[in-house]
């Protein structure tokens, strides 16, 4: 049976329809950011003092939701993972970028998505943050020759945690789900330890737990079931080894996967099997994550 999704790649919807459907998807995203309280810079920044750990809890929940959904749909044969665009790994630049990004978030109180959402709620500090973000982006692009080589260094292709750890995808999904729940509880405990609130509204807290506990339970059950399946159940031996994406694909937004023999997953000993051709000055649009 042919797989249905991704709809735009299997030809079920046109490219124009795909673009228009991005609007309602973005709408839900923006609404979710608002209802997460992510349009408030103080709330985001307080996470770095463990004063309000709602931010990482939301992030973990979003990742776990997307992760369980993606791999469960792949498991039941609904979504063809070989037709998806996966983010490639440039390990050291991404780690350094993440550290700088964290500094910027603690100083500025936003990340790009939350700042954009906050601009839409009229917040002036968010508007100034976005101006700064645009300046930072243009600086990076215009002075690209200075750090271009570093930007393109440590290329690992599409490199997944299951390959790094030598475990099945389902097991990694379960581990991450448990770690997200455990991490959330641990941070919540830290918040109560460092910033005790003896006059907290117990009824309101209880009402929130009543919503959250079933969601967490469902996630645990789904992840536990997925852990029973081997990696091959999630990733069909596709003709294209999409785990190795060529560094500079032909056309932007449609990265051509290098054809690799199936089952030739990068082992942890040799995590960079990419037969990358002559080093590119800059990768094409496909490797642009966000």
């Amino acid at each position: 049976m042919d797989m249905i999704a991704p709809l735009a790649k299997t030809g079920l919807i046109s490219e124009a329809m795909n673009l228009w459907l991005a609007v309602p998807i973005g709408f839900v995203f923006g609404l979710g950011l608002y209802y997460a309280g992510f349009t408030d810079s103080r709330r985001i920044a307080r996470a770095f003092y463990l004063k309000d750990v709602g931010v990482p809890v939301v992030m973990f929940s979003a990742i776990v939701t997307g992760m369980l959904g993606l791999w469960a749909l792949s498991l039941i044969g609904f979504i063809d993972t070989s037709k998806m665009f996966y983010l490639p790994t440039f390990l050291v630049p991404m780690a350094v970028g993440g550290f700088l990004f964290g500094i910027g978030m603690a100083v500025g109180g936003f990340c790009p998505g939350t700042a954009a959402a906050s601009v839409a709620t009229g917040r002036i500090d968010a508007m100034i943050f976005v101006v700064g973000f645009l300046i930072g982006s243009i600086l990076f692009g215009d002075l690209f020759p200075i750090w271009g080589d570093f930007y393109n260094s440590d290329y690992r292709g599409v490199f997944r945690l299951d390959e790094l750890l030598g475990l099945d995808i389902g097991v990694v999904v379960l581990i991450l789900t448990v770690a997200a729940i455990g991490g959330s509880l641990l941070m919540r405990a830290g918040q109560h330890y460092f910033w005790p609130q003896p006059d907290a509204d117990v009824d309101a807290l209880r009402a929130r737990l009543k919503v959250q506990i079933p969601l967490v339970a469902v996630a645990l059950v789904v992840a536990a079931v997925m852990a029973l399946f081997p990696t091959e159940s999630f990733i069909k031996p596709a003709p294209a080894g999409w785990f190795v994406i060529q560094k500079h694909a032909a056309a932007p937004e449609t990265p051509e996967a290098v054809t690799a023999p199936s089952g030739d997953a990068p082992a942890e000993a040799a995590p960079a099997p990419a037969p990358a051709p002559a080093p590119a000055r800059h990768p094409r649009g496909g490797s642009e994550g966000c």
């Binding site: 995203f29 810079s41 992030m59 983010l87 440039f90 630049p93 991404m94 350094v96 970028g97 993440g98 550290f99 700088l100 990004f101 500094i103 910027g104 978030m105 603690a106 100083v107 500025g108 109180g109 936003f110 990340c111 790009p112 998505g113 939350t114 700042a115 500090d125 968010a126 100034i128 943050f129 976005v130 101006v131 700064g132 973000f133 645009l134 300046i135 930072g136 982006s137 600086l139 990076f140 692009g141 750090w147 570093f150 930007y151 490797s287 642009e288 994550g289 966000c290």
Partner: peptide, 20 residues
């Protein structure tokens, strides 16, 4: 907010993406 924005903008390009 402006300084944080500049740092974050640079970092997001270096890391090929932002939080989302």
């Amino acid at each position: 907010a402006l300084i944080g924005g500049v740092i974050t903008g640079f970092a997001a390009r270096l890391a090929r993406g932002c939080t989302s």
